[in-house]
Amino acid sequence: MQPTAVPSNDGSDIALLPGQVSGVFTTARPTFGAAVDDFLNRRPVYEQPLEFPHNIHVGKEIACEVCHEGVDKGPKAGIPGLRTCMICHEAIATDRPRIQQITAMRDKGLDLAWQRVYGFSNDDHVRFNHAPHIRNKVECATCHGNVGEQTIAQRNVEHTMGFCVNCHNERKASIDCLTCHF
């Protein structure tokens, strides 16, 4: 991203000063194709920076919320960054090449650029909050499948509105639109 000129009020272009961020953040889709994909509910295939073995970690009986630490505190479960990894891996399994790889990244000040597997697009306008679901004893697997059998998390439960509403109906939770959409 190179500094570029931005339009000023009087029509002339102001050159950006060194270090200034350029660009505009909008809710517009970047391309027409992306808009069509969103319309048809097609999700791009992401490649994760690292093949994270969920199965091994879950197999060692590490609870989900140990790494996804926001899950019982607020809306976002959070995708753990390298800092979280290094809490354990500073000492554990340091001989594995993958661990050495992430240790090197950490030393360079880089974080893992995880791709989101679940989550809603902006124009779903969903304000989902994990914490109350955890409090009401909804199993992680209900919405995320059995991650313990996966390496990289796979999106194998489709979070359609019907999926949410069914569960809300069964558990007599509110199905008012403003429960989730605001």
Partner: peptide
């Protein structure tokens, strides 16, 4: 129009 914010106002 699509709402927009000049970075980093977002």
């Amino acid at each position: 129009f699509n709402p927009s914010w000049d970075k980093p106002l977002q």
